[in-house]
């Protein structure tokens, strides 16, 4: 299983982390996207505060950065659950049943795209081609790819994630307060 995003840092720690991320990546061409990816990986989501910090550090307009963040479905401005499920709706996955997978997941998890389950375990997102069209339909749970998924097998697919979470000490589960979810 992949690591849990650290959502517990306070604002000063977050600022330092963002400074380090920007410093290490800012000199490469097209630095914005890698910086946003690294920031989201570390902080779990891209808050207004984080984006404004990145805007200042890169000397790039906030509206331009938000344009990139809102363009790519990968980026989120809301806190996510422990596992983000991304259902690919690229052309190949779409025609081979991606849409049905998404509908079934909405039913199982009782959430819409962009939302997080009440127990903060799963978030549901849509992807636009993971470059694995031969394996369609594909979905990702955090960094793990699941291929040729059938709607009827989804419950079984999610079971290990649920049980692993149950077996772990509760204080390691992600803490997402209402404050973060502005």
């Amino acid at each position: 299983m992949t690591s849990t995003p650290a959502l517990h840092q306070n604002s000063a720690e977050q600022q330092e982390l963002l400074h380090n991320i920007v410093d290490s990546l800012k000199d490469q061409e097209g630095a914005l996207i890698p910086i946003l990816q690294a920031a989201q990986d570390s902080l779990g989501f891209l808050s207004t505060e984080s984006l404004k910090t990145i805007s200042k550090l890169l000397n790039m307009p906030y509206s331009e950065i938000s344009g990139v963040v809102s363009f790519y479905s990968y980026f989120t401005t809301m806190p996510r659950g422990r596992y983000t499920i991304r259902v690919c709706l690229g052309t190949a996955c779409y025609v081979r049943g991606g849409k049905q997978l998404l509908e079934e997941l909405k039913k199982i998890l009782q959430i819409e795209v962009g939302e997080t389950t009440e127990d903060k375990l799963f978030s549901l997102e849509v992807g636009r081609c993971f470059g694995a069209c031969g394996l369609a339909p594909v979905l990702m749970i955090n960094d793990e790819i699941h291929q040729r998924v059938k709607p009827t097998k989804l419950a079984a697919l999610l079971a290990p994630y649920k049980s692993e979470n149950d077996s772990e000490a509760t204080d390691e589960s992600p803490k997402i307060s209402q404050e973060d979810a502005q």
């Binding site: 790039m60 307009p61 509206s63 344009g67 809102s70």
Partner: peptide, 10 residues
Amino acid sequence: GVGALFPQYR
């Protein structure tokens, strides 16, 4: 050089 307006979403 202000950058107040940009395309948002897709």
